[in-house]
Design a protein around this nucleic acid. Sequence first.
DNA 1: GAAATAGTGTCTATCAGACATTATGAT
DNA 2: ATCATAATGTCTGATAGACACTATTTC
Lengths: 237, 237
Amino acid sequence: MSDADREVALVASDMVVLTLRDDELHVALIRRAAATERGKWALPGGFMRRGESAEQAAYRELREEVGIAERDVVLEQLRTYTEVERDPRPERVIGVAWTVFGARLPDLEAASDALEAVWVPVDEALGMPLAFDHQRILADGVERARSKLEYTSVATAFLDDEFTMSQLRHVYQAVWGGSLEPANFHRKVLSVDGFVEETGDSRVGRGRPAKLYRRGSAQTIYPPLTRASVRGARPRS
Amino acid sequence: MSDADREVALVASDMVVLTLRDDELHVALIRRAAATERGKWALPGGFMRRGESAEQAAYRELREEVGIAERDVVLEQLRTYTEVERDPRPERVIGVAWTVFGARLPDLEAASDALEAVWVPVDEALGMPLAFDHQRILADGVERARSKLEYTSVATAFLDDEFTMSQLRHVYQAVWGGSLEPANFHRKVLSVDGFVEETGDSRVGRGRPAKLYRRGSAQTIYPPLTRASVRGARPRS
DNA sequence: GAAATAGTGTCTATCAGACATTATGAT
DNA sequence: ATCATAATGTCTGATAGACACTATTTC
């Protein structure tokens, strides 16, 4: 094979940024300012630069495009999209997609690349037409988030450093849809070694004060929590 | 930002090709013929060409570099490696990595890109120095395979169309290391709807003939099989 | 019959889910 | 006292793991 056959590609980092707002799962969408697909809703993202990894590009675009700081989020690679027709531009563009989880992220500030930047409820966003193949990336990202809640402790990434058991349960309910039985959830979470640890404090509100927890050292949950136990879940799509 | 800052990259598809030989998990390694890292052991792979997706490049390289046909394997995306220093060449090279599972794959034929191409037991390969960041990719791929056996039915990708329960169990034992209790494994597999279905035939050997099964329609296994049950497993690394 | 392998039955400890009960605060 | 929320207790059915046992073939 001759070297001339090798494709050279631009590398875009596309982010599925998820957070909870009013106990509902939201995703960050921007309306594109750039010429290609201008005006369409899209996932935030941008091109990897010289001397930068795709992960660094992701963090930079989070900051520049929607005003989110690296320390406020957990970023994980989702997958890479390389179909030839996924981008209409003459240059070949491949997309490295990431999931980004954050706690109580603020309203978005639309920067240079975006006409608007807003939080959209995930159920609504999944029904919107999006630029490029972002519809599919979003669906993959949401499914990944749902799945990761089962066997990892990433749910805590949606919460502040200190949180109540009820708040943790609301994360699961928002991401999975439906409701979980509080008593069983409580017992299950505490039975997993290193999932959460007590801070010793409690939070006062209406009703009995709730103990506060922080994330423990465990990365994975065994045995996993299971989506089978959600009641009134939205039907499988 | 000026367009000139955008990196253009070569896209390599790197494959962690796994198969069972003598009930032991093996990975395909080549010894590099190309100038860069010449003579070093590496994962098979090659550059995405114009008009081709990374997936198509993976299938093409499987055929060209190690003589494996697309219909004989199951290919899944692993993750993408984009660190700046991962490749010493002046051109920027990012790697899209894939896991490839196949049944009784034949001895490898070293083609143009390779001085040699051989099956290496995974435990041995994990201890070898490999070119580029292939050591890490291999470790990620093996861990992904172990994990996927828990909650998907991909184990059947390591077997012919028709297989016995004992053969399926040997797949799990080889990939996970250690041994599984035959009776419980049998009962568990049959209890998962759509994991396997009987063909009606049986295979004669020493001892009582074994019923033959083929893969069912299920993609995922719920509840999952669990590595917690392996006895005499190799210690966690 | 002995050996080898496949497949079934059974016991027990554990655990998930349902739901009742108790605890502790605010008003 | 009442309400609201948090947390614990209890019951039951399902299941995983251990292991004994039966079945069917070859030699």
